[in-house]
């Protein structure tokens, strides 16, 4: 009886590893594209060629051209720079900021914890994207402001995780031992607390990359993010949506790019979560 069980577990573990490698490589390819996008484009993404406007996909223009005759493939590739980089920047800022607030609250406790956590409750009470639209609307359009708006709505989630993890760490004997060894607050936070809580926070932020990418593209689609003619997937879709029935490829190309990258980052996040949690891996 015991042999088959062992075999099943082995296979399971291997798939997680394989998945991790596959999605890791796919994500790296996406990052590679966005870093070297200028060198990968077949045409100049901003060069207008009105004779060739609204051309359907063909061997010369794989994704066709838009209403100014700009090559869609080049624009989608260049758009990856704005979309992927802004998303990673956004996730990075939210993770660091939220973790800082959470660790501070968990460690300090007392009234400051209560005040900050009630504020985070207030943020969590609003529906996310609607609140982000309001913030971005008040700040005015532009990619920077869209990022600020999304940071404002996303930090409480990370603050909550970091706080609860810090509270759990605080009660462990090794943290008491660290206090007894005469370590100051900063040393304890950076040497003992952060290394022990970084795992779950990292998994959450990996899972959030896909969502953040969609929300950022969503804000751009609504005209609250990147402004044309900057190539950004959300604003490109919004730009061409009136022509959806006659030249569908102009909308579909960036849509497809969003779909693929959100999918890859979501699956990567899922896989990292499975990999990081040996309990769910064993089953």
């Amino acid at each position: 009886m015991s042999e088959p069980t062992i075999r099943i577990q082995k296979i399971k573990k291997d798939t997680v590893k394989t998945r991790l490698i596959i999605f890791g490589i796919l994500a790296l390819i996406l990052l590679f594209c966005s870093v070297f996008c200028e060198h990968l484009t077949p045409y100049d993404p901003y060069l207008q060629d009105l004779k060739n406007a609204k051309a359907p996909p063909s061997p010369e223009h794989l994704f066709g051209t838009d209403r100014y005759g700009r090559d869609m493939l080049s624009r989608v590739i260049v758009g990856s720079k704005t979309s992927i980089f802004s998303t990673l920047l956004l996730v990075g800022i939210v993770t660091v900021l939220g973790t800082m607030v959470g660790v501070f609250c968990g460690w300090h406790g007392k009234w400051i914890d209560t005040v900050l956590m009630r504020i985070s409750d207030m943020f969590l009470a609003f529906p996310g994207l609607v609140f982000a639209m309001a913030v971005a609307g008040v700040l005015g359009g532009g990619l920077q402001n869209a990022i600020i708006a999304l940071v404002a709505i996303s930090w409480p989630k990370y603050a909550r995780i970091a706080r609860s993890q810090t509270l759990a760490q605080k009660e462990t004997p090794y943290l008491k031992a660290a206090r007894l060894s005469g370590s100051g607050t900063w040393k304890i936070i950076f040497k003992h607390i952060l290394p022990n809580i970084v795992g779950p926070i990292f998994v959450t932020s990996m899972l959030d990359i896909g969502t953040m990418m969609m929300e950022l593209a969503g804000l751009s689609f609504l005209g609250l993010g990147a402004k044309p003619p900057t190539a950004e997937w959300g604003s490109m879709m919004s730009d061409a949506r009136s022509l959806l029935s006659s030249v569908p490829w102009v909308t579909l190309a960036p849509g497809f790019a969003i779909f693929v990258s959100v999918m890859i980052f979501n699956l990567l996040g899922d896989t990292i979560r499975d990999y990081a949690d040996p309990k769910s891996r064993g089953r």
């Binding site: 004997p173 008491k176 007894l180 005469g182």
Partner: peptide, 20 residues
């Protein structure tokens, strides 16, 4: 004060940081 007073805890493994 902790230079003059130290403690040994009940659970040996838990009293060391798993990451150090």
């Amino acid at each position: 004060v902790y230079a003059r007073m130290q403690m040994v805890f009940q659970t040996p493994t838990d009293s060391f940081d798993p990451r150090c």
